[in-house]
Design a binder for these strands. Structure first.
Lengths: 248, 248
DNA sequence: ATGGCTCGGATTGTCGACAATCCTATGAGA
DNA sequence: TCTCATAGGATTGTCGACAATCCGAGCCAT
């Protein structure tokens, strides 16, 4: 969050992002999408075309296309003549996102319960272990990413491409919601809950898995802080107070 | 379906589509999206940029942007160096779409049951009446559109923008599925089922409404015909038959 | 000092031209 | 007659340049 934008977009493998010429459009899309999901790009961050063009070493046309798609995914907002910036969800959008995600995740976990294989269970367990390790190492970024990855894995196991695609965007937007509205202590996902879901899947108990998933997602929402609905609302409230109480 | 493409895209109000200069991008997007939802654009129809440019009287850049977005929505497919064509869902995609839609619609109808107002009920009833009228008039296009509109109305009533947006794309893609796999007699939606859902909403009976909705959507899928999974599979099957039975 | 105005730099929006690619029609050869 | 190669037209992909718009700095009047 505090690192410069170019660092957020040119991750560990710097050569892949900056050096290679003609990086395909999809790869650029993925990098930005991923950077938002990792919370490396904070909500509201401006995404200047020229800057992105230099980072990815492509023409502005490509960048423009990518931004158009990201806007459709709800990851960035596109204001006319003002350019693109990382989306800053309103409380309403945040709430809608949670509700949508609950619906999609319930369907996915039920499908997954019916199709899960031992190999799948092993992958899920590995993910939980990795998240635990990240938690103990205090690596907040890795934790957020891995706990999202757990859900992506479930979508893959469920085997429904359309739901997986939808969930991907919902998860990334939820990362923006969390980044915007999190309280001080920010335990975004608890690995115990993931473990419980895994156990239910192991028993192919779709109903329990679905119930646990809904509780899990509800817990995430409860940990957020929505009270000051908008930053700019402060102004109008102050104005109202001045009018009512009298300032002169 | 049998009318020329330009007619499909320049509907009743021809002036709006062809004459006005500088039609905004969103409007072009809507027109194409809508034309697909109405089944005026058959699956697989090629969408040449030059042709669209002439129809909407804008530059190719705009058309290109619109096609990019439609591809993201899954309404058109974009093959490199081959251009755009209306999506032709595979049986797998069709099935995934039905499952996704069931999940989204269940969530929506439950939300709608909790929030529905008398005015909303009236709007839903008007929609059902219009669909009945279209059915008696034998207007297949209007029927398909109105029966989809019923679900769009529900999404609006539910008040969740994200789910509404998702459902919109799912419905349009389902129109493509139906156009691809429908049997001879094609009663795509039964207004009795819509009426039953409406009655449940009137009682604010979310569980019943959800159950009816799922049955309703399941019925739609059951009316389709998936047996010949792909057109090009025929070739390999014929080849296999020649090999086995001997053709010389 | 404050509020409004103007101007310059920076950024985005749009377009036309050119390069790259693909499909089709044509004709030579077996 | 059939297959293969080739040339031509048609279509898409890419880029750079210019126009339109916006933001902020600096100046002027009050």
């Amino acid at each position: 969050m505090s690192k410069p934008r170019s660092a957020a977009l040119a991750p560990d493998s710097a050569a892949e992002a900056g050096d290679d010429r003609g990086l395909p459009e999809d790869a650029i899309y993925e990098q930005i999408h991923h950077a938002v999901a990792r919370q490396d790009l904070a909500p509201g961050t401006r995404l200047r075309e020229e800057e992105l063009r230099r980072i990815f070493n492509v023409s502005r046309t490509r960048i423009r296309n990518v931004l158009t798609r990201l806007a459709y995914a709800g990851v960035v907002t596109l204001e006319p003549n003002r350019g693109a910036s990382v989306a800053r969800p309103t409380p309403k959008e945040a709430h809608d996102n949670f509700i949508a995600r609950r619906a999609v995740e319930e369907a996915i976990v039920r499908l997954a319960a019916a199709r899960v294989t031992p190999a799948d269970l092993a992958r899920l367990e590995a993910n939980i272990d990795a998240e635990c390790a990240a938690r103990q190492a205090g690596d907040q970024t890795a934790m957020v990413w891995l706990s999202g990855e757990f859900h992506t894995l479930l979508a893959e196991i469920a085997g429904n491409t359309i739901l997986a695609r939808i969930l991907r965007d919902l998860i990334t937007r939820e990362a923006l919601v969390i980044a915007t509205y999190e309280r001080q202590g920010k335990p975004s996902c608890s690995h115990e809950e993931h473990s419980a879901i895994l156990a239910a899947l192991q028993r192919r108990d779709a109903d329990t898995a679905a119930r646990l998933m809904l509780e899990h997602l509800g817990n995430v929402e409860d940990r957020l802080y929505f009270d000051p609905p908008e930053r700019d609302t402060d102004l109008s409230r102050i104005f109202g107070r001045l009018e009512k109480g009298g300032a002169g």
